[in-house]
Amino acid sequence: MDIVFYIASAVAIICTVMVITRLNVVHALLYMIVALLSVALVFYTLGAPFVAALEVIIYAGAIMVLFVFVIMILNLGPQTSQQERLWLDGRIWVGPTILALILIAEVAYVLSTHSTPAYTITEISPRQVSTQMFGPYILGVELSSFLLLSAVVGAFHLGRRRQLYPEEIAVSAAAVEQNTSPQGDIQPEPQIQSDIHR
């Protein structure tokens, strides 16, 4: 069982590195799904099967599908990955990365110097989790229902295309002009007028 944990950890780390360095959003999403599946395996080896199932169903299932739908709506073309390549090219973040790696090495040193003995993992069943959650944590469950309701309302309000006011159209057109002009090669005409069809 130990070796499963280590392999799953390695897969999770490699996939996460791939997620944050991909140019294409869809490739990053595929790596992200694999990373989430390997983290679910880590949960399983840590004796948390219920949370492992939730990780696969909600994270890898629902949230990633949401990302895929949004990418389909946005319909990003190849010039986006070109833009990403331009943004990622900078040498600016090499220095901070090296310094942060030194800090991570320090954390590793501190954690490895005083080691707690390895403990035998006991599995926590879904029944235990549920009796705790609907017992002492019932207030948290109610609060998260508030949060989800407000998120639904907020997402609906923000996501729908509403009629733009004339000054907003002017500001938006100016911004589109500014965003697209430095690229030069592609000049998508600002399709603001299509926003006022309803």
Binding site: M1, D2, V4, F5, Y6, S9, A12, I13, V42, T45, L46, G47, A108, L111, S112, S115, T116, P117, A118, Y119, T120, I121, T122, E123
Partner: peptide, 12 residues
Amino acid sequence: MATIPVEYGLFL
């Protein structure tokens, strides 16, 4: 079941 030091999990 498995025996995994807690540091390794925290490391991950």
